[in-house]
Design a protein around this nucleic acid. Structure first.
Length: 151
DNA sequence: GCCAACGTTGGC
DNA sequence: GCCAACGTTGGC
């Protein structure tokens, strides 16, 4: 079981939205590095759910991978914001995963706290200018995050 | 709202 | 293949 961090703008799709939906396809990722991480995910992997572009940004809860290697359906929909004209059902460019809500932290772990606890070398999310929306989380960092989040 | 970071596009 | 222009992300 591996640990990952996934980012979402809460105005777009928040952890509360996932809680309401219970399960969701993590669609819309159009960055190759992020997609490559999505391809590596396996059922049962733990996801730290991070709210970006909000005040304050930080980790708000946990989710779980429920289906691996899901073809992102939005890439074929010409009406959709995430339509990719260069992708075909025979040769899809964008894979993702299905995720399920797990839990909401009693208190979020803010980016400020993350910066205090971890170095940019160890945890990409605290790196200045970091824009990656899906990234791996090392086991020891995951353990500390669970502690910090009171899980 | 500003702007740094950085990925992508497209001309050459 | 280089690189300038452009668009997006996301913290502040």
């Amino acid at each position: 079981m591996r640990n990952w961090l996934i980012k979402s703008e809460p105005s777009d799709y928040s952890l509360a939205d996932l809680q309401a939906d219970k399960v969701a396809i993590w669609d819309g990722v159009r960055n190759y590095q992020a997609r490559n991480f999505l391809r590596e995910m396996e059922v049962g992997d733990r996801l730290f759910y991070y709210h970006s572009n909000t005040k304050p940004p930080g980790i708000v809860g946990l989710a779980t991978v429920t289906k691996a290697n899901v073809v992102d359906p939005t890439q074929f929909d010409a009406e959709h914001k995430y339509f990719d004209p260069k992708s075909t059902p025979e040769k899809p460019r964008w894979q993702t995963v299905e995720i399920a809500y797990d839990k909401t932290l009693a208190e979020m772990i803010t980016l400020t706290q993350l910066k205090e606890a971890f170095s940019p070398d160890d945890f990409a999310v605290v790196r200045r200018g970091n824009r990656l929306s899906v990234m791996p989380v090392a086991d020891d960092i995951a353990t500390q995050l669970l502690e910090m989040g009171g899980v």
